[in-house]
Structure formats: structure tokens, C-alpha cells
Design a protein around this nucleic acid. Sequence first.
RNA 1: CGGGGCGUAGCGCAGUCUGGUUAGCGCACUCGCUUGGGGUGCGAGAGGUCGGCCGUUCGAAUCGGCUCGCCCCGACCA
Length: 570
Amino acid sequence: MRYTKLFIPTLREVPSDAEAISHKLLLKAGYIRQLAAGLYIFLPLSWRVLNRINRILIEEMESINAQEITMPILHPAEIWQTTGRWYEIKDEMFRLKDRNGRDMCLGMTHEEIMAWLASKEIRSYRELPQIWYQIQTKLRDEARPKSGILRTREFIMKDSYSFDADEEGLEISYKRHAEAYHRIFKRCGLKFYQVQSDPGMMGGAYAHEFMAPSPAGEDEIVICDSCGYTANIEIARSLPPFINFPEWDVTEEIYTPNKKTINELSDFLKVPPSLFIKALCILSEEGLVLVLVRGDQELHEKKLTKIIGPFRPATKEEIIDHFKVEAGYIGPINYSGRIISDFSLKGGIFITGANKKDYHLRGVKPDLHFKTEWHDIHLAKEGDFCHKCKGPIRIERAIEIGNIFKLGTKYSAPLNAVFLDKNGNEKPLIMGSYGIGPARIAAAVVEQNHDEDGIIWNKAIAPFDIHILPLNMADTRTVEIAESLYKNLSEIYNTLTDKHMDVLIDDRNVRPGVKFKDADLIGIPLQVIIGERSLKEDYIEVKIRRTKELIKVPLFRSEAAIVKIYYETE
RNA sequence: CGGGGCGUAGCGCAGUCUGGUUAGCGCACUCGCUUGGGGUGCGAGAGGUCGGCCGUUCGAAUCGGCUCGCCCCGACCA
């Protein structure tokens, strides 16, 4: 392809509202343009990248016998009403009416439609398993689109769905997807983790996310390098640092005038925060709940929500009304309502509020001095230890690039997607669903692979394989050699992409500096530089974008040398 | 949805507080010459409903009200 025939509107300055690195670079290098909040136009370069990613997706999906189909984006409401998600999902779903006033919605995912199709077509266990997938647009009215193409309201997704006769079958489909996903992300050149995750609205009991570590990510993941435990912080468990408890044999009141927060108490009593019980007064739908975590820990609200449902902190007035004392002095002793404690309090001796103004109690032992339910409700943090192997854990920010869910019968049962098993019994299909966002892959790759000059694409998903830079278009020898390389390299077979080399030649009549700057920005893995200076000595130069290494290549049989460098480059 | 910020030429910005000629600057763009290994240099030119509406005023980019849009933090997030 000729640069002069390709629309690559690179910018010298980035629009000021871009914040994320991938957003800035993709704008600056002429890959994308924004139409509105969370809506992006993919220009020729980024479309080439997405097509290469999709090619990999298709290959890997086919390798696990998944079959590509395509489904409508516009859905009738009835199907979503049948599974209940029409009512459960709120503003995130785009809804509309057709000309007859019939309720419709735009597809944010396709479990319903897939289960509907299976309900119509699958009759027998002999037809199982099936894996169907599509690469297609999804629409979600996101509360806050952000970070360029990392979180948009309209996006392309590879979504696949498995149908099995039983749990064992689902386990196989799930595993094969996980393996295919590993290959996909590896081929795209991403660093990533597979982590345990919260199934959320998808339902089902079991899910994993694929996470590409990056400061631009919206999620935090917990990683134990010792045993390999990885989980989204939303569900991650951890052991807070172990503490040696003092020998407070008796429970006694201690005078703590005007000391209400853990920090104030810790300073005042010269006792570390971990020896306090933090008592939080929570109002759930069923009433007041006293929630206890160790003084050095944070309550994880999502974990608590799973136990007691939606809640809010009680107001100052509500606390005084109930405990007859301010929030700073409340505690579990003699409290008759529901008490939920974090596991990290088990077996310890603590200081906690005495339910009496200006007093705390020292020497309080959970289970002995008060009855409580035990749960994991603290937020894992740096410095904690792995709950499995006790090794140190660390926390990284990450971009969610894919996810896999075991759905079970959540969709097949209400939509009556059933089959007859070997014994002639009617059973609901066991489903799984699996998603990957190609644009997120592209953005994550840019986040992980760039330098101060621009993007550094991995060979597998670069918009072009080789970028030829004839430095002086007024010099006939430069142009002749560049054109002949362009022609010859383009005819060479590229086993990585299973087609011919994609070569871009910068045939613009511009200064060398402009070509160098744009080439580095665009980020094609290999640059072939043809300048008069080196031609005088009958060589050209090959620059590896990632390392900036310059390799002199003799003019004679230069094609072979360039291709060799291409294959040897990471 | 709560909090904050911003809207002036394609991009980056100044001007707004303290209203007053034809609204500026840099880059990009067009033409001519020049230059040719890291965004050449010189000259000429084109490009603006100052986000929108309403109001105050002799006069509004500038003051007031409403509204739309975009970004960031949080909540939310199949």
C-alpha cells in the first residue's frame, strides 16, 4: 500500500481531552477519531489492526470447533423479558419501540438470542456439544465511557456460547475456551493473567477474566507469585498481616476522651490499628447490622452486599438513636442485633467501642464476648498474604480483555432450551458464554507496547509488516530501489499472516524527518530506510521499531536479508 | 447519578476577572521559491455563527439565566 493512497491523518498535537496513553497515541497516529462520548470511528490503520485480531480470533475459535454465525443487533423485548434481564438491567440497555409500538432493545450481549436459537433447533444429546460464536457489534449505554476505545458505548465483541448435555461437558467447553484465549492473547503479544472473577449480572456460579496489566485499567487484580492464585479484587481473598496479641486477660473499660477514629485511638493508646475492631453500623433492607473488621482493614462493600443485600451506612442520628452513643464508641458487646465479622478477627483479642461515651473496652474476644457470623468482608491490599499458600500477594491494575462464564441453565431453563438425553429424559442445555473485545486488545497492546515516539505493534496484529521509507523522493535511485523493494517484498509469503507481506511505502514528497516521526508513531515493526547517504556505499538500513536497532543490509539480495530480519524480530 | 474541569479556525492555546476598533498566536492547510538522514527556511494566502438560546447594555467571546456537548474522579459497569 502507498502512503499517499492511505488516509493516515497523524497529528502533531493530541486533542487535550485524551488522557489514556492508548487514546492519545491512537488519535495522534491517525488510527481513530471520536464521534461522540464512547463512540469512535476506526480509520484505515486501526481497521487493519482489528481485522488481524479478528483473523486470530477466528482461527482459534475454529480450532476448538466453534462455528461462526451472526445474529441481529436489534432484539424483540419478549426474549429478554422471559429471562428477566429486561427488568434487571436498568439504564445500561438501549431500548426503543418499532413503528407498531413493540418494545425492542439493542443487544448488549446475546445469551438470550443464543438460548432462543438453541431452544428451536437442538433436540437431542446427539447434537451436543455445540459452540456458536459471532464477531459483532454490542451496544451498552455506559454510565461513563472513558479512556478512548477502552470503554465505549458501542463496540465489537467476539462472543461465543457453548451448549452441553451436562456439567462435565461444560467443563470441557470452558477449559477449551480458556486455552484458546491463552493462545489468542499470546499471539496478540499481550501480557495477561487469567483471574477468578465475579459472575455479576451474567449469573452462573463460576467465571474468569483475562486481565492485561496496565495503569490504564479499571480493575485491580490480586496476584500471588508463590502459588499462582489470581483473582479480581472484587472477590479476592487475603490474609491480613499476622499480629501478636498482647496478654489482655481481663476485659476492662479504658478512658478515651474524644478519641473516635482508629487513628486517634491508636496514637492516644500507643497501640497499632490492627488491635482494634472497627465497628460499622450498616442499614440493610432487613434492618440494622453491625459489621466488624480489623482496625487496619477496609470493608469490601461488594462482598458485604452479597451477604446482606443492598445497604447503606447508618446516619449519625440513626446510630445515636440505636446505641445512645456516637459512632466512635459503638461496639459489639451487649449488642443484640445481627453481627457480621471479618475472618481476620477470629481468635484475636481487641479493643473496641464500649457503647458508652468516651470509653472503649480492652481485651475483647470475638465468639467469647459476643456472638457473630463469620465472613470474608475485607478488601485485599498490598502487604497482605495469600489465603492459600501464605505467600505475599501483590495488586496490579489491569484491563479486562476477555471473560468466560459458566452459565448452567440460567438462560436455557426460562427459554425452554431443552434436549432429550440418552435415557429419553428432557433436560435443559448447560450453557457457557465467552467474550473478547478486539478493540480492547488493540488498546491494551498499545498501553503495554509504546515509547516516547509512538506505538510499537506486535508483528501479528500490526497494520503492516514492513514500512519502506525512501528519504528523498527527488532522488531517482532512491525511488527506483524503494519501488523495487516494495514490489518484491509484497510478493513474499508471510507465514505469520498466512498471506503475502503487507508493505507500506511512504511515497510522500516530504522531508525525511517527517517520515521518521510518522513511522515511529504508527509503529510498524520493521522500517526499511533508503537514503542517499547509505546508497553511496550500496547498502540500505533496516530499523527494528521496538529496539530502534539499525541494521545495515547490502543492496544485493536485500529482500532476503529484510525478510530474515523480519522473522527474527520479536 | 454525585463532585470537579473545559467549550474561541483542523489541532494546541491566549484573550473572559476589569464589556469598547477589523478576535490574536503557534502548528497544520493552499500557492511560490528553498531544502532533502529526525516534524527545513523564507514569502504570500485561505480559514471564525467565540457550543447554543434567552437576557442585561449604546455596545457582549467577556456580565446574568437556561441549555447542549466533551473530559476527569467517584458511584455504576453483560
